[in-house]
Design a binder for these strands. Structure first.
Lengths: 164, 164
DNA sequence: CCACTCTGTTTGCATTTGCAAGCACGGTGC
DNA sequence: GCACCGTGCTTGCAAATGCAAACAGAGTGG
């Protein structure tokens, strides 16, 4: 029953704090959170919000992302290549553009490596958040490419045009 | 509005959702949050916790980190890494694939900078999909994307995967 | 005209966050 | 003896999160 099974986040904070050799109150002051709340967080009785986590990370002088990963709020999955990581880190693109580039890149790699193998299970227009990893290009990617492809004149892009 | 760019997490979510062309309820189901709450989040009436943010990021299939940065929860000031150099260094791609990726990347950057320079897109509470001035990609680039774009509307995945 | 379905929104409420105040314990010095 | 530090922990309580249900419009079609 809703026992905050954030697990190691509290222990992780406590470890970091003890390694820094500062007291709970010191960290609470540095992080700008109350000491009782920090106490409860460290013992796993409370599940802090992202803001509190961020402040604690600041107070501990550790990376916010490391804390989010510990909290399970960021998937720390290994990027499949340096290209993907680099694209992801590029703040000059929109998120959609990033996704398009990464998807294209991965499609290219699959094509280049496998050459023949392909998956033909992308029939539904609805996305399934759980079961898509092998598709060539997702529908929303094509939707994102659509405005660019509009001037090509090849006519391959056929959309419902429900609203526009 | 001084610089409320990082504060408008809700607008960012709404933009991403509308770009993905899914309804609020669809996203709420995919993200596992209630639709009224998502509505309030998008309009800035509620400040979602990190968990909710993470679920929304999953539902949108965008990077959680990008969302946290948008929410101002991560001071992520990573330098604009050189995507082009990384693509060029990738030996798992063919030269032609590399060129296509680089072309797309540079087109995206031009478009992103041009679109961001005069007005940010959060001026209107609702975007009109037709008023986007997005520049088309070069024709040879679209030709390279053709086999992937085949699954847009006709459902026939015509993927020759032949690049020679 | 009415039923049905989709869109996003509002309302009321259980649950939770996060804090101020206070508690219990241990070590100092006077 | 006992005031005075420090440590972390417990207790209420205002405020916020997040949800279920109901609401208001716009299409669509019987």
């Amino acid at each position: 029953m809703a026992l905050p099974k954030v697990g190691s986040i509290g222990e992780y904070i406590r470890e970091q704090r003890q390694q820094a050799k500062i007291s709970l109150r010191q960290l609470s002051a540095a992080a700008g959170v109350s000491n009782p709340y920090l106490s409860q967080i460290e013992r796993g009785l409370r599940k802090p919000s992202a803001e509190i986590l961020n402040q604690i990370a600041k107070g501990l002088r550790i990376s916010s992302q490391a804390l989010y990963v510990q909290a399970g709020l960021i998937e720390d999955r290994e990027p499949p290549s340096d290209v993907v990581a680099t694209i992801r880190a590029d703040t000059l693109l929109t998120e959609r553009q990033r996704q398009v580039l990464i998807d294209i890149y991965e499609s290219f790699r699959k094509e280049h490596l496998a050459g023949d193998e392909q998956t033909s299970q992308n029939a539904h227009p609805q996305r399934d958040p759980e079961t898509d990893d092998e598709r060539p290009l997702p529908p929303e990617l094509l939707a994102a490419l659509e405005p660019y492809a509009a001037s090509a004149g090849n006519g391959t892009v056929n959309q419902e045009t429900k609203e526009g």
